[in-house]
């Protein structure tokens, strides 16, 4: 009858949060009933939410052993980084060509917020910043695709979190990126973004393989 029930949405948000922040560890079994009890929700919204998370590749279903939080491996990291490097660069390039004054106001505000905040909130703002650039690219399929890959990389970030000291430097890269988009320098915007994303995965790869 309606698009999505409020309790399903609530279950989805909370379980997704658990998976990406590793409270539900990669490879850990997922039990709908215990999640429902823990979250104070009914079993049905939890089951509906798990279906959505299977679709997001954050939960996997195996025929014999039921549901698991999906694993994250270095191989995944390589594949995700390949996709994101190319698509984020395209996103920045299109944004430099198409950004409206409203889009630029959003990027400015997000940059200002990043300068004011601490490391834990920084990641959420970084996500928003990349989303805002994808919006400024004015290609909804690109925005949707990027969001999905971003969701998958989030867990890599939480794994590396205790040793991520490079984020403030990344914020400075954002400043250059905004400047390039504002000036309409599409080639430069794409280049900064590619470098920015590559840098992130290099750091994470290094931390995870130590």
């Amino acid at each position: 009858m309606e698009k999505i029930r409020v309790d399903t949405q609530q279950a989805y948000n909370q379980i997704r949060e658990k998976i990406v922040t590793l409270a539900l560890a990669p490879g850990a079994p997922v039990n709908a009933q215990s999640l429902a009890d823990e979250l104070g929700l009914g079993i049905r919204p939890v089951e509906e939410a798990l279906k959505l998370l299977i679709h997001d590749d954050l939960v996997v279903v195996t025929p014999r052993h039921g549901l698991y939080a999906s694993d994250v491996t270095l191989a995944d990291l390589e594949q995700i980084s390949e996709m994101r490097m190319t698509l984020e660069a395209l996103s920045a390039q299109l944004a430099a060509q198409r950004a409206t004054p409203d889009d630029l106001a959003v990027l400015d505000a997000l940059y200002a917020a990043q300068k004011m905040t601490d490391a834990t909130e920084l990641f959420a703002l970084d996500h928003k910043f990349h989303q805002a650039i994808a919006q400024a690219a004015h290609n909804k399929y690109l925005a949707q695709t990027l969001d999905r890959f971003f969701g998958l990389s989030q867990r890599l970030w939480y794994m590396a979190l205790p040793r991520l000291d490079f984020l403030p430097a990344a914020v400075e890269e954002h400043l250059n990126l905004v400047a390039a988009i504002k000036k309409g320098e599409d080639g430069r915007a794409a280049q900064i973004m590619r470098h920015h994303v590559q840098n992130f995965y290099d750091k994470v790869r290094q931390i995870l393989s130590d």
């Binding site: 029930r5 409020v6 104070g40 929700l41 919204p45």
Partner: peptide, 8 residues
């Protein structure tokens, strides 16, 4: 959410 849980 609470009402739906009671129903369930």
């Amino acid at each position: 959410i609470a009402v739906r849980r009671a129903m369930e």
